[in-house]
């Protein structure tokens, strides 16, 4: 066994192992997303889970900022224009600890009545604040649109309350594909889309007490590898990929900070309202905190983990 030159045998052994080792695009995506969100573990994140990185990353984080805006009928009566949509909730994360269990919170949240499907396009530009980019808040946005608006209950033309078929058609596709953890993405989207520089878009079903009758209870978008190809924005103009400071700049005192629990179970804000959207952000370094996810849903905190 040692007749042959040992140097040669070591070299052959190492090269043969190396030949069997390739970083596929899915792993590369995971490496990038995890590094950006400060996550030091990769093994538990298989491809499908990268679609719920908002959940996983946020579970690991130090702080959650929730911004709540209540939509009430009375408020509508007091305004000459329809009320500004939703109560975006913003999650700000820190990379100081490895993400714990991605288990979803079982904490109950305030129940709400799902909006009728007809509300998917019910937020015209006039409902937005002065900070709203002019390019956004167009009704009927398909998910291939270069600019997509996310509210507390909709992502583009896809609105909570729709069936999966309706949602797929609204998004501009024929169907959704379930990829696990209650998350569904348009068929045939996959990792290649993220690799091409698009954010990840999905609907998900949180089967909690308030969402049990809905086909899906959350809509969301998060940064895949880049956001250069598509803009995801709240009605107020907070965009995926913006610096986290943008949250406070836009929402001001409406932002609320909710620390994530060490267990990875997110606390649920007691004021979680029917009109809450959630934005989550994680920082990968101390200088540049970045918004990496925006979600909306019946119980938005559950939508991010």
């Amino acid at each position: 066994m040692i007749d042959r030159d040992l140097d040669e045998q070591i070299s052959e052994t190492l090269n043969e192992v190396a030949d069997q080792t390739h970083a596929d695009p899915q792993l590369v995506n995971r490496l990038i997303v995890n590094a950006r969100s400060g996550r030091t573990r990769v093994a538990t994140l298989r491809w499908r889970s990268t679609w719920v990185v908002p959940s996983l990353a946020v579970a690991a984080v130090v702080a959650i900022v929730i911004i709540t805006i209540l939509l009430t009928t009375s408020s509508a009566a007091h305004h000459s224009v329809p009320p500004a949509s939703p109560s975006p909730a913003v999650t700000q994360t820190a990379p100081t600890s490895a993400a714990p269990s991605p288990a979803r919170s079982a904490t109950p949240t305030a129940a709400r009545t799902a909006p009728a499907s007809t509300t998917a396009t019910s937020h015209p530009a006039s409902t937005t604040t002065a900070e709203t980019p002019s390019a956004v808040i167009q009704g009927g946005q398909q998910w291939t649109s270069p600019v997509l608006t996310i509210t507390d209950h909709s992502l583009g033309a896809v609105s909570i309350g729709m069936s999966m078929t309706q949602a797929a058609h609204a998004a501009g596709f024929t169907s959704f594909t379930a990829i696990g953890d209650g998350v569904s993405i348009p068929t045939p989207w996959g990792p290649a889309r993220s690799a091409a520089g698009y954010p990840e878009l999905y609907v998900s079903r949180w089967a909690g007490p308030s969402g049990s009758t809905q086909a899906f209870t959350c809509v969301g978008a998060f940064i895949g590898t880049s956001t250069t190809k598509q803009v995801i924005t709240t009605p107020e103009g907070v965009r995926l990929g913006d610096p986290a400071s943008r949250i406070l700049a836009v929402y001001g005192s409406r932002a609320r900070n909710v620390p994530a629990l060490p267990s990875g179970m997110d606390p649920v804000p007691s004021t979680s309202s029917p009109t809450t959207a959630t934005t989550s952000s994680s920082n990968s370094d101390t200088q540049g905190q970045q918004i990496v996810a925006i979600v909306g849903g019946l119980t938005p905190v559950n939508c991010v983990g």
Partner: peptide, 25 residues
């Protein structure tokens, strides 16, 4: 990472840990 850590899985972990720590700088 795989050659020095002994398996593909540990290599992925080592690489992720390294990249995550390097990313901020």
């Amino acid at each position: 990472a795989t050659l020095t850590s002994g398996s593909r899985e540990r290599g992925e972990e080592l690489l992720q840990d390294t990249l995550t720590n390097l990313y901020p700088q």
